[in-house]
């Protein structure tokens, strides 16, 4: 079922059924996006559920001037960013701890290269990390990232370029790779 059909069903009174379909359509994409941001499965699960609860409470006000897809990504990204900033306020640099624990995480079975990549990405400032993840892993067009993060495309391109250069430099440091 398309987003348009889901929204139609929702507005015609089938709210629960429509929302269930929405969750079904987006659960995996949003989960993986959040998971790359927060790294830990339980934290990702919390953020994902909060995302859907917020979507449910504000779907009435969704005017349709953005795509449902970018609107949901915006809620999910904000939820993950809020989680990360709360973690930093509480214990300081906890997401780095989560990154350093990746190798022993039972829900991570990537190789050394993948673990290193996620460890260095975790060092990026949260919003730059969101830009990098949406562009690098999801290959989302800048136009859509701009809608998700409510930023200009120009600023996003510069942010992504800086993030990419940082990740490259940190990877080089960590892996001692020769150019």
């Amino acid at each position: 079922m398309t987003d348009r059909e889901i929204l139609k069903l929702y507005r015609e009174g089938g709210r629960q059924e429509a929302f269930r379909l929405l969750v079904q359509n987006y659960k995996e994409r949003l989960y993986w996006h959040i998971r790359r941001m927060v790294l830990d499965h339980d934290d990702a699960d919390d953020c994902l559920q909060n995302t859907f609860v917020k979507a449910w409470t504000s779907l009435d006000r969704f005017r349709g001037d953005a795509q449902l897809y970018t609107w949901l990504y915006r809620i999910a990204t904000n939820e993950a960013l809020t989680f990360l900033s709360r973690q930093q306020t509480r214990g300081g640099r906890l997401e780095l701890d989560a990154a350093s624990r990746l190798s022993s995480d039972p829900w991570f079975d990537g190789d050394q290269l993948q673990a290193t990549l996620h460890r260095v990405i975790a060092k990026l400032p949260p919003k730059q990390k969101a830009v990098f993840l949406l562009r690098y892993f999801e290959e989302m067009p800048y136009e859509q990232i701009a809608q998700v993060l409510e930023t200009s495309e120009g600023a996003l391109k510069a942010s992504y370029h800086h993030a990419y250069e940082k990740v490259k430099a940190w990877m080089k440091e960590e892996m001692d790779v020769k150019y």
């Binding site: 499965h41 829900w107 991570f108 990537g110 993948q114 892993f137």
Partner: peptide
């Protein structure tokens, strides 16, 4: 895009 194969599990 070394992450093309999802390293995370659920």
């Amino acid at each position: 895009r070394s992450d093309a194969e999802q390293p995370f599990r659920v």
